Simulated assay, not measured.
Amino acid sequence: MTSTALCIGGDLTVRRLGFGAMRLPTEPGPARETSLAVARRAVELGITLIDTAHLYGGGANEELLAEALHPYPDELLLTTKVGIARSGPSGEWRLDGRPAVLRDQVEQALRRLRIERIELLQLHRIDPETPLADQLGTLRDLRTEGKIGRIGLSEVTVDELDRAREIVDVASVQNRYNLLDREHEPVLAACEAAGIAFLPWRPVAWGESGANAEVAAVAAEADATPAQVALAWLLARSPVILPIPGTARIDHLEENLAAERLRLTRAQRDRLDRLTESA
């Protein structure tokens, strides 16, 4: 039986299907109102982890979630990411893990989310131009100050994860991973071995899963959608996986959450497992 809960950092239990807020429109107007409704519906349906980031609208996504959900239910975990800033030559977004930037983005997130502590803060990307010890050391200092509860990483290799773990305790890793894209299989294996939560982004490969004949066939057999099959496969793939599918539509949100009840047979999982063997 696939577990419906996951413990992050050894002490924070959340539901194994989260919600990625990146795709929620934040501009004023009807689309924003729908975004607020989607976020509220996610919590109504029992979602306990919502993922956002400074990058998503330069904090606008964080503000949207605060407007929709504050004051937050005790069981809700809002996780955000820092380390990408508008610090390029022409003000464009670039990797920026300088200590002052990370600290400023954490302070901004605390203010926008209207909280005193970010229970899970992830480094959005490792900045190759800033020593890793400086980047993670800053987050460790913020944790010591009580502004961060746990530290996670995003888009890392096994080697980067190993080096990071020599500096700080790593509670989570957020890498791109799905049924049709398993580039980070070694990272998932490392996370499973260490008991680190693995939050795959782009968990249903958007429209690609439905275009795959084998996925479509399994979906037809299971009376499910291809997206539900992709999510059910992830949940069965490893006990440390916590998918964070995103959507700006309530019907898609409800469809995604229904994947938690889908039980693929061993034969169906074997067929899906083999999809990337010739890739």
Rank of each mutant, 00 (worst) to 15 (best):
I118H: 07
E92D: 07
S238W: 03
R41H: 06
A230F: 06
T26K: 01
P203G: 05
G207K: 06
L6D: 02
V14S: 03
A194I: 13
A227E: 15
M1I: 14
R16D: 03
S172L: 04
P203C: 09
A236C: 07
G91L: 03
E119P: 12
G152W: 02
Y177V: 08
L139Q: 03
S154M: 04
H54W: 12
R176G: 14
G137D: 00
S209T: 15
G29I: 10
E166R: 15
A222V: 10
I167A: 05
T48F: 06
A197K: 09
R98L: 01
L17A: 06
A190V: 14
I241L: 15
Q135M: 11
L45M: 08
V101I: 15
A133W: 02
T79H: 00
R125A: 15
L262I: 10
T144G: 08
L142Y: 09
L235Q: 03
L153D: 08
A100S: 13
V156K: 05
E33I: 00
V168I: 14
Y56G: 10
R269Y: 05
A216V: 03
G46W: 12
V240F: 07
E166Q: 12
I8M: 04
P243S: 11
I250M: 07
A216S: 13
L76N: 06
L142K: 09
A66I: 06
S154P: 10
R103A: 07
S154W: 03
V168R: 11
L102E: 02
A21C: 04
D181P: 01
G97H: 10
I126Q: 01
S238I: 12
L77P: 12
A194S: 14
R261P: 06
L17V: 14
V218W: 01
I50A: 02
L12A: 07
L64C: 03
G58L: 05
A68T: 11
P30F: 01
P245A: 02
E63P: 01
E129Y: 03
L6V: 13
L77K: 06
A68M: 04
L17F: 00
E116L: 05
R16K: 09
G83C: 05
A217E: 14
E67R: 15
L257A: 06
V170K: 05
A31C: 01
V168D: 02
E27I: 02
E145H: 04
P28M: 00
V43W: 08
Q108W: 00
E260P: 08
E254R: 13
L121S: 10
L253D: 13
A222L: 02
T52C: 07
L231G: 14
G46A: 10
A189M: 08
P226T: 11
V173E: 00
P30N: 02
Q105A: 11
D159K: 10
A42R: 13
P25I: 00
G146H: 05
V218Y: 03
G152V: 13
G146S: 04
A211G: 08
R40M: 00
T157L: 04
L275Q: 03
E214K: 07
I47S: 08
I84D: 02
P186H: 06
E221M: 01
I250N: 09
E155M: 05
R103E: 09
